[in-house]
């Protein structure tokens, strides 16, 4: 029997989808160990715990521990790390799970260092096995998958967004409040403001569909074709290759690949992308991959489930039209 603590990430008072994925993973690990409890630690302004309690319970949390303070409206690395470490230390937990999101990748190593334990980072699968946590972790930018063995208690892991599918396992969770272990007002590192990044409604990490463009588009203004196709899907985000973001056609935050974002949408449409290793590293785990490229020998076609060879300036507008029709039931 193993109790598992998760940090359920919120932003602006709302749960992020990765929080439900991590709770799902914790529920499975606790059940597999013979029925431990899942406790979800939530940080935010007053009221956050009550707002997210039902959703966390529906995905398998037995207890929601709300750490609420006006000073925790934004992510406060030092206060969250001290509080999470303290809870793990005093609560007798077998394991602690985080999302390997921008926040979790920052938080988890701090917690591990505070506890003097090691961390399995950015894992795609995990299992408690005897005195070890055994995980899968992509190495060499996704070219190989390592099976790692982590010893020590608590066993800490951060889980790659999208690697676990959130599933329901209904509970009626208890709600408990706890003070932060260190006052956010005394933190040395402090978030001063949130910065807007473009007008994208859907984040690359969360969009079910991604339409990404490469050099084959020839000029920044031709990204209009990619945006129109994304709009036709209705649930798509726009991504780009490194070549494109390096040239300033798109902001750096749009970059998918080894040095950019790692994504795994249900559908990935690669437009004018030849398929450099650096790009493939960021999208190879996508559900279905479609490639449109003029060069039939482009490496992207080796990875793609479906390919169309030809002039993207003719193919993409036609695809946009057909997707629009398909979505309107035509």
């Amino acid at each position: 029997m193993a109790n598992v603590l998760v940090v359920a990430e919120t932003r602006g008072g709302e749960l992020r989808s990765v929080a439900l994925e991590v709770v799902t993973a914790a529920r499975k690990a606790a059940d597999a160990s013979g029925g431990g409890e899942v406790h979800a630690l939530v940080f935010g302004a007053p009221g956050t715990g009550a707002a997210v309690q039902d959703s966390l319970g529906r995905h398998g949390a037995d207890l929601v521990v709300a750490v609420e303070s006006a000073g925790l409206e934004h992510y406060d690395a030092e206060s969250l790390a001290a509080t999470t470490a303290e809870r793990l230390r005093s609560g007798g937990y077998r394991a602690g799970f985080f999302a390997a999101s921008a926040q979790g990748r920052d938080l988890a190593p701090r917690v591990a260092a505070a506890l003097g334990v090691s961390l399995a980072s950015d894992v795609t699968a995990l299992e408690l096995s005897g005195d070890a946590l055994v995980v899968q972790h992509p190495v060499y930018v996704g070219k190989a998958i390592a099976t790692l063995r982590l010893t020590g208690t608590p066993a800490l892991a951060s889980i790659r967004p999208g690697a676990v599918t959130a599933a329901e396992a209904a509970r009626t969770p208890r709600l408990e409040t706890a003070p932060p272990a260190s006052d956010p007002a005394s933190s040395r590192v402090r978030v001063r403001e949130m910065l807007a990044r473009g007008d994208a409604k859907l984040d690359l990490g969360e969009a079910p569909v991604i339409v990404a463009g490469g050099r084959g588009l020839r000029a920044a203004e031709n990204f209009r074709l990619v945006e129109e196709l994304a709009a036709a899907f209705g649930n798509a985000a726009v991504g780009a290759t490194r070549a494109v973001t390096d040239d300033g056609w798109r902001p750096a935050t749009d970059q998918i690949g080894q040095t950019g974002r790692m994504v795994n949408p249900n559908l990935y449409v690669a437009v004018g992308i030849s398929g450099a290793i650096q790009h493939l590293a960021g999208m190879r785990t996508s559900g279905t991959i479609v490639a449109i490229n003029r060069d039939k020998d482009a490496p992207i076609f080796k990875l793609a489930d479906y390919g169309i060879v030809g002039d993207l300036f003719e193919i993409v507008p036609r695809l946009t039209e057909e997707i629009r029709k398909a979505r309107s039931g035509g």
């Binding site: 949130m194 910065l195 859907l202 690359l204 969360e206």
Partner: peptide, 9 residues
């Protein structure tokens, strides 16, 4: 950089 936004620290 965060997912879909950024913070100034």
């Amino acid at each position: 950089e965060l997912e879909g936004s950024a913070e100034s620290v």
